[in-house]
């Protein structure tokens, strides 16, 4: 093999490699474009209905029915607001939702963290099968007992039109306890409990004095999840709240849709919907990272 032949071979190999890497770069570039394109279309489709909700909330029925549709805000926001208040006691319903949401979430965080802590930190007899039982209850669909649940709430507890009906029944969720157990196991060292015991802290108070303050991030993440679920719940409040002034927002909004005197006033409906949705959108956007972390912690260890 002559030297010139060798250089020629090396040259060809190099050229081939360059061509290949150029093709590879092209392929990567097209992939990048296609991937980002798909994601952008999807993000647009996810977010657009919210934009549309805010736009329609400011338009009168005439503007909404116009052809082509108007994509910019109209000037009927105030009229829609007044019309809405004449149909539903919006702020009263809003206050109901806030009150029920906060009390329910607080109670649920207390019960779930206590339960999760006990399952994570104590080796008590029966722990294994009690925890298995707890997990099994997650598999039971709510629909199985819905009829007697309502009989219990209405006939025996007399909780119709009372906040208790929305606050207490779901206050200790199996999911929440399971979730808290994962968190406690990963973040609280058992030496900490021993140290507290040696320092003479009463066994019952270790959780409240020592552990609970360390669980703040977990309270935030799980609390947002519980609060949003509670805020959005529909069937429960629909069953137990029969007085307009006791409705939570979703039930109230449904009334806005079904009000027979008014027919279909999309602007008013969208205003109510926007005002009920906005707080949750703000909560979510302010705490996205925490919320996602919370959600996936529960899912991955399942």
């Amino acid at each position: 093999m002559t030297p010139s032949e060798t250089t020629r071979l090396i040259e060809t190999a190099r050229r081939n490699a360059r061509r290949k890497s150029r093709a590879k770069r092209w392929r990567q570039l097209t992939r990048e474009i296609v991937f980002n394109g798909i994601l952008m279309v999807g993000a647009f489709l996810s977010a657009f209905p919210f934009y549309w909700m805010f736009i329609l909330a400011t338009q009168s029925t005439n503007q909404i029915f116009s052809w082509p549709p108007q994509f910019t805000p109209g000037d009927s926001l105030l009229t829609n607001y007044q019309t809405m208040l004449s149909i539903i006691p919006f702020w009263r319903n809003f206050a109901n939702s806030v009150f029920v949401g906060i009390t329910h979430t607080t109670l649920a965080l207390l019960f779930c963290s206590m339960g999760g802590y006990a399952f994570a930190m104590y080796r008590f007899p029966g722990r294994t099968w009690l925890f298995a039982l707890l997990l099994a209850t997650m598999m039971v669909p709510w629909i199985a007992g819905i009829v007697p649940w309502f009989i219990l709430i209405s006939k025996w507890l007399h909780w119709i039109n009372r906040y208790e009906a929305l606050i207490i029944p779901g206050a200790a969720s199996a999911f929440g306890i399971f979730w808290m157990r994962q968190y406690v196991q990963e973040s609280i060292p058992s030496e900490l409990l021993d140290a507290a015991r040696i320092d003479g802290c009463h066994e019952f108070l270790i959780f409240f004095r020592i552990v609970a303050p360390l669980l703040m991030p977990a309270f935030a993440a799980l609390g947002i999840m519980i609060f949003i679920n509670n805020w959005n719940a529909f069937l429960g409040p629909l069953l137990v709240m029969q007085d307009k002034s006791m409705y939570t927002l979703p039930v109230s909004l449904a009334l806005l849709r079904q009000d027979p005197r008014r027919g279909f006033d999309a602007g008013v409906q969208m205003l109510g919907t926007a005002m009920a949705t906005l707080p949750m959108l703000i909560v979510f956007l302010a705490a996205t990272r925490r919320f996602m972390a919370g959600l996936t912690l529960g899912a991955l260890k399942g």
Binding site: P49, N232, P250, L253, M270, T273, M280, L281, L285, M292
Partner: peptide, 24 residues
């Protein structure tokens, strides 16, 4: 991060609100 938030927006919205938006 942006995409994750965008795709998750519908989930934090109540089914009632979503249904009203879609009915329009």
């Amino acid at each position: 991060h942006f995409y994750r938030s965008a795709y998750f927006l519908p989930v934090v919205t109540s089914p009632v609100a979503v249904s009203l938006i879609f009915s329009t």
